[in-house]
């Protein structure tokens, strides 16, 4: 059975500890525009979050200078991470990460590790949900799994973002859990994956909630289960009487797979503690804005916040976990 407990446990322990002990007022302040690197293309989940952050910070004047979003998506995000790694001690640069913080160096051999960067804070964890087309007869994850098991290997098609990244990792874990192979088809972005599902070109996807929620509202797709150890807390009605909280966990449906994706902030190596403290403080302020809370609700995020040593130990656990998962799936470069 696959229990990715580093994610699950990290999430549980940290949940509720969002109010961190306040640090002394940061003495350092940015003196010029801060570059906000997005190691992914425009329009994806990380990019949307970065631009929302930019909007919130500008709207509430949380920073004395501007925040400039720059996409560096080359080499599965490797380009962006290398850029930050090579900007030693530059406090005017931050980077938002997704799982490619771990997967890209492992899958491509691009020379960097999260330890080359300075961890700042975890903003949230992104959930993953198993979706099928609403016109298909599968009402529950069990029904879908039964259908997959009844067909030959590779009959059912799973769409996902990128190759050897989080979506495919989940797909491989899903395959292991049910003991049947699916055909994984990689696409460029989460939005495109959701549309391919609506168009019936793939049978299921593991989209993040925010990528598919509008299609759900339009009754085009159906969530079967969430890859987390407990159901989501959001009870706002989305389609009919259904809300995020009515989506069962995959574990309860007999598919013991859990995966949560990091949405965190890092800085270049060699920055001072004061500079890190400034950004930790900044993002704490962001979390209190209504726009941020709305985003968390819309995207059904797990709003765990972490900084300092707690964040570092979470990262260590998560890295080990990814290494094991990718090793098992045969995704490590050079294989």
């Amino acid at each position: 059975m696959n229990i990715f407990n580093a994610f699950g446990l990290g999430a549980i322990t940290a949940l509720g500890i969002t109010a961190m002990s306040l640090q002394p007022a940061a003495a350092w302040e940015p003196t010029k525009p801060v570059e906000f690197i997005v190691p992914a293309g425009t329009g994806g989940g990380a990019d949307q979050m970065a631009r929302t952050l930019q909007g919130i910070i500008a709207k509430h004047s949380l920073m004395s200078t501007q925040l400039v979003v720059i996409n560096k998506s080359g080499g599965a995000g490797g380009e962006g991470f290398l850029d930050v790694k090579n900007s030693k001690a530059n406090p005017h640069k931050i980077v938002i990460t997704l799982s490619n913080l771990f997967t890209t160096p492992l899958a491509t051999g691009i020379p960097f590790n999260w330890k080359d960067l300075t961890p700042v804070a975890m903003l949230a964890l992104d959930e993953f949900v198993l979706w099928v087309n609403a016109e298909k007869p599968y009402k529950t994850a069990q029904e879908y799994v039964t259908a997959i098991k009844a067909a030959p290997d590779g009959t059912f098609k799973m769409g996902g973002t990128g190759s050897k990244q989080e979506d495919q990792i989940i797909t491989v874990a899903f395959e292991k859990a049910i003991g049947k192979k699916l055909t994984y088809i990689p696409y460029k972005g989460g939005g495109e994956v959701a549309v391919q599902l609506v168009g019936g070109h793939v049978d299921s996807t593991v989209n993040n909630p925010i990528e598919a929620v509008s299609q759900w509202r339009g009754d085009k797709v159906r969530p079967l289960c969430v890859f987390d150890d407990k159901t989501l807390p959001y009870t706002d009605k989305i389609l009919g009487d259904l809300s995020w909280s009515s989506v069962p966990t995959c574990k309860s449906a007999g598919v013991d797979v859990e995966y949560l994706m990091l949405r965190g902030i890092f800085m270049p190596p060699g920055v001072s503690a004061e500079q890190v403290a400034y950004f930790v403080d900044l993002f704490k302020k962001v979390r209190e804005t209504p726009e941020w809370q709305q985003l968390m609700k819309d995207g059904a995020f797990n709003p765990t916040f972490m900084a300092g040593p707690e964040f570092v130990s979470w990262l260590e656990g998560s890295e080990k976990n990814h290494k094991a998962l990718m090793q098992e799936a045969g995704f490590i470069a050079g294989n």
Partner: peptide, 23 residues
């Protein structure tokens, strides 16, 4: 689904205004 980077940014804007693009 944004057809271009510009459209992607516009979509991000829609989300901030509380509009969900979609059916």
């Amino acid at each position: 689904v944004p057809g271009s980077p510009t459209a992607a940014v516009l979509l991000g804007g829609l989300l901030i205004w509380g509009l969900q693009p979609g059916p």
